[in-house]
């Protein structure tokens, strides 16, 4: 019995504290968190930070190179690129977060079902295999195009593309956790299957899931840009990182700044998230530790 008790305690309290301490000493995590926080604050306070209205057209300021007034230059409608990038962070980050959330929910439901209820394992996972057989970006493009261009549809499309892998990760950790002593013990004591799943198994599968969702966030920002570039991203005129680049492409020779700056914004955001994910992985997902 004492083993059961200590197992439960060990899984609920001390590791959380332990993990938090270790995260604060993880260089990847700290740099990543700093970058992501910076971009997030930029998105949050876009109204206060942006020097101009990101949607204001002006014929007189068309295609101006970066200078003291327009730090990132202007586009072919005379709009300030800096302001568009600042506001673009809003849409790009929103798409990233919501995609991660949606993937997290769907992936957990599917993965936990497959991992915990054995008869469903094979059919569910073969279905996921089938979804993974399509190149993720192409699947997202196809779904987004078929559903029609909107922020919601982009999120749905990206979530469909990222869910199978997420489900696989959740299933893998569920399979590991469900065989552990304290779960077996809880089962032997007569805990119901669902209670077992939600109370004991899922909380312990959380680490790899959080790590995965950080990467999904990063992937979603990259994929949003690709979708915009293809022309099935969030509709204009509201800017996202991707849509600014897509519009700048036709002016790449005479006004490369339209393309360069939102691209750098993507790199900073995605780099931050990847670092964050690496740090989290080092601490939360011992199997992947290097």
């Amino acid at each position: 019995m004492s083993a059961v008790v200590s197992g439960l305690e060990a899984s609920s309290q001390s590791p959380t504290w332990h993990a938090a301490t270790r995260l604060l000493h993880n260089r990847s995590f700290l740099i990543g968190a700093g970058l992501v926080l910076a971009i997030a604050l930029m998105a949050l306070f876009a109204d206060a930070l942006a020097p101009f209205d990101p949607l204001r057209n002006s014929f007189r300021t068309r295609l101006l190179a970066p200078d003291g007034r327009y730090w990132f230059g202007t586009d072919h409608f005379g709009r300030d690129i800096l302001s568009r990038v600042i506001f673009g962070a809003r849409i790009s980050l929103t798409i990233g977060i919501l995609t991660a959330l949606l993937t997290g929910i769907a992936g957990t439901l599917i993965g936990a079902t497959a991992g915990f209820f054995r008869p469903l394992d094979n059919p569910v996972m073969r279905l996921m295999d089938a979804l993974m057989a399509f190149p993720a970006i192409l699947l997202a493009i196809a779904v987004a195009a078929v559903l029609g261009a909107s922020v919601t549809n982009v999120i749905i499309a990206l979530a469909i593309a990222t869910t199978p892998h997420t489900a696989r990760i959740v299933r893998a950790s569920v399979l590991v956790v469900r065989e552990q002593e304290f779960v077996l013990a809880a089962r032997a004591l007569g805990a119901s299957e669902t209670r077992l799943l939600f109370r004991h198994v899922l909380p312990n599968a959380l680490g790899p899931l959080i790590v995965r969702l950080t990467y999904v966030f990063a992937t979603a920002i990259l994929a949003e840009a690709a979708l915009s570039f293809i022309g099935v991203g969030p509709p204009p005129p509201a800017p996202s990182f991707g849509s600014i680049i897509a519009q700048g492409r036709d002016f790449i020779a005479e006004a490369p700044w339209i393309t360069i700056f939102p691209g750098l914004a993507i790199i900073i955001s995605v780099l931050g998230l990847n670092l964050l994910g690496d740090g989290l992985r080092d601490v939360l997902d011992p199997r992947m530790r290097t």
Partner: peptide, 15 residues
């Protein structure tokens, strides 16, 4: 490697 993972491929192509 981390930068490689963080760059949008189409943007890199344009660059």
């Amino acid at each position: 490697a981390l930068f490689g993972l963080s760059v949008p491929d189409f943007w890199l192509g344009i660059m």
